[in-house]
Structure formats: C-alpha cells, structure tokens
Amino acid sequence: MVERLLDSMISGPSAKRFYTLFALAFITACSSREVIVDGSFPTPLVDPVPVSLGVVFTPEFREHQLVDDATGRGEVSWSVSTGVAQVQFWSTLLPAFFQNVVFIESYDDLETYDVDAVFVPEIADVQYAIPLYTNVKVYEIWMRYRLRLVEPEQLKDNDNKTLSLDNMQPFAEWPLTAYGKTPTAFMQSDSDAVNLAAVMALRDAGAHFITSFGRVPGIMGWLENPEESQ
C-alpha cells in the first residue's frame, strides 16, 4: 500500500525502494508496541495451608490489559495484556499453597463445593517504565493487587441463582504489591524486556503473597478455625 502510494509521487525503481523503506521505518518507529505477557511459572515449594478455598477470577482479572496511548506525547504507545498470564500464574500458585482449591465460575459451583472461603483477586493498578522515560537502564513493571477473602454465602444471589460480587463484605482484604525489572544490558527488544519484567513481577507477587499471607489481619484468626472464624 505504501509502495503504491509513493508510486504516484516519485519515479525510478531505486528511488521508490528507498522512499518505501524510509516510510516503513518511519511508520514502525511511530507505531504501538503490543505485549501479551507469556512465561512459565514454577509450582511453589511450600507446606500447604490446611484450608479449602474457592477462587473467583473476574472477567476484568482474566482480561486485564494495561494501555498507554502515547500518541499525544509523540511517543510509542504500549499495550500490555497480563490477564492470561495472571490466570496461569495464580492457577499454579494457589493449588500448591492451599490444601484444597476449586475454581468457582457459577452459582452452581458455590452450591456444589464446600469451601471455607472464596478468594477474589483484583488488579488495582499496573504501571510500566522503560529507559526512555526514566534514564535508568532497566525496564520495570509494578503491579498492585487488592485481594479479598469472603464467605461463600456472600457471593450467592439466591433470588437470581447467580454468582454476585456486588454486595460482598470480605472478612479479610489487603493490598499486595509486586515489582519486576529487566536491565537493558540483557540486550532484548523493548517488547521482550517488558514481557520479562512482567513475568518477574508475577513471580514477585507470588513470593510476596506466600511470605505475607499469614500476617494479614483477619487471616491469622481464620487460619486457626477456618470454618467458624468469619
């Protein structure tokens, strides 16, 4: 298309090829970067917490995407999709960290499974920084979660027989921050470096979650008596 456009403006095959290359390079430089976070996540080495936990991944969580439209600033726009990786990561971590984990997707699941509590993770914020913005030679990703534990009964909309998060009152709610970075010295493309930083941030989220879980207010008491303390 670009070549056809230039065809009407200039003559000579070599000149056309040169201007086509120039135009393509210009378009590439001004285009956006799209990263779908992809990585492999190890199973944590922990003694499982002796509780039975339901997990709800909301559609917002499953499809989470960070979009930074920088066209107004004359910079490259970024789109970083973390949703698939989030689900993959937490689906690996939670079944290893808790004795019994079931993934709740419907009202029927809540009726079927007898769980002590339901875990509802939410991504409150994701930010990124690249060397162009910070002058520091690292690509960085920050994640902030809002994590909640709620009684299963609170998620049941018995009138409509649906799963509802609208009126839940968690017995434990806490923030969790995570950080990942990739130095420029590792010589990757921008997109690869942001992907790796996001994978590192997810691993850090797991490390932070596992090491801080028992100290969260409201959870210590619940762990002592999971079936009654709520």
Binding site: P42, T43, P44, L45, R203, H208
Partner: peptide
C-alpha cells in the same frame, strides 16, 4: 531457583 520457588527470588 525454580525448584525452590519462591525462596530464592530477589525479594526472598
């Protein structure tokens, strides 16, 4: 590091 996750992460 993977086999001992999360005990040898930068945080831990």
């Amino acid at each position: 590091v993977d086999s001992l996750y999360p005990w040898f992460e930068p945080r831990t």
